[in-house]
Design a protein around this nucleic acid. Structure first.
Lengths: 235, 235
DNA sequence: CGCTAATTTGAGTGACTTCAAGCACAGTGG
DNA sequence: CCACTGTGCTTGAAGTCACTCAAATTAGCG
């Protein structure tokens, strides 16, 4: 949580296609650059918590975070991850509500905090930015709807296969197919929406069926087509 | 689908607090009024279908619609309902994607179709409207996230109780507690994300426990507190 | 300091239970 | 008469509990 030694510039960050800031003019970027506050967050630290209000949002410069809701008897439900170029906490300030998820650091992160006021100013004055923000939220809503159907209709087995593929798309694999993300079995279970033991058992099954290879938390996808078939992604 | 005899005016519609059009200036309302096309949709007809692109969105003047995704072997997953004052199909045109749900009429409806171009113009020129649209989408995203957790962590029994309460909030009850919405058991199952038989059994249980009263499709909530307890809404 | 000892944390297994889906069939009512 | 509701029965998927094992952390202590 201490201030970072190296403060990333928004100009540089905006070059990355993924960022919402890419269509800002130079003077607007300058303003954000001036208003933002960057900090280093160590693994395990919590950036903001479900139920609390924030007076701004976060932009991920580096690192990985999980965003989850806490349910019955404290069980986490992971809603999404955030990595370089993603923004977090914007939903709640846009809707004027308290945060609906908690954001926790999985891999040491550098985050920039941007005050709501700056965001609202941009929405007011730059309709392209505004449009981009709407697009992003609308797209995420589409994902959420899809997720609802999956979780309601698919078996745990199908969902686990789908999540593995989703992790591949989000975090990529190395040359030998190893997913570039470290998750505990419990965290996997909290994405899929099932018990830890079920994930363990199903992963072993997938391994037996030569769909994946396991080495501790390293998961390698050996047969993507096979996983797609199981997940029945394209109904 | 034939044109309606009585065309509702947007001015009138905008007076309703729920509508997004409430902060439009008169000339903007006039433009929508000019651009919009109203039609009557009979019960059972489909307004737009998942996977198709639309070049506009719909505003519900009267009637009730269900919006659902079609899953494995054609099972519907109802995502939400739309009633007077709600808008439909805006998510997909905002995100520039195909519709992610199908909209089907449950009770005869009068819908106004507003072209995307008109919407985009408003976003460009009226930042308050833009902000309202963002807020609405962001709020809906929050709902969706909550729904994900519920469906992933709660039992069918808990979810059914919660859905009954949600229907109460959306469609109200009459003086004797009867929900002002007609749904088949199958449709209820498609909201909860379960089998029709399970809904039937659980409804009978709720009836035995004096939580609800049943009379065909009419469901009366007798013990709201009790249902809240079952749904463990406030964990 | 360094080197065990003690504790914690996560992965994995097996036995058991339960919830809910699926199937077949019988009413019922618009 | 057909779509919807309701019931009984069976089966299977997945949750729960109880436990082992291995690795990683931390504490303790000469």
């Amino acid at each position: 949580m201490k201030n970072t030694p190296h403060i990333p510039s928004c100009e540089e960050c905006a070059r990355h296609s993924g960022t919402i800031f890419r269509m800002l003019k130079n003077d607007e970027l300058d303003e954000i650059n001036y208003e933002k506050r960057c900090s280093v967050y160590k693994k395990g630290s919590i950036v903001f918590q479900e139920g609390n209000r924030t007076n701004g949002f976060f932009c991920v410069n580096s690192g990985i975070l999980k965003m989850y809701k806490t349910g019955i008897d404290g069980k986490e439900q992971i809603i999404r991850f955030a990595k370089k170029g993603d923004i977090m906490g914007y939903r709640s300030i846009l809707s004027g509500e308290a945060a609906c998820t908690t954001a926790k650091v999985l891999e040491d992160a550098v985050l920039c905090f941007i005050p709501s006021k700056t965001l609202f100013n941009l929405v007011k004055t730059n309709s392209e930015f505004s449009m981009e923000l709407i697009q992003r939220t609308a797209h995420e809503l589409g994902d959420a709807n899809k997720y609802i159907m999956n979780i309601a209709q698919k078996t745990v087995r199908e969902r686990l296969a789908e999540i593995l593929l989703l992790l591949k798309d989000t975090f990529d694999m190395d040359s030998s197919g190893v997913l570039q993300i470290n998750l505990t079995r419990e965290e996997l279970a909290n994405i899929v929406g099932t018990a830890t033991e079920s994930v363990i058992r199903l992963l072993s099954e997938f391994k037996q069926d030569k769909l994946i290879a396991l080495n501790g938390r390293k998961i390698a996808l050996l047969d993507v087509k096979g996983l797609e078939r199981i997940s029945s992604m394209y109904l």
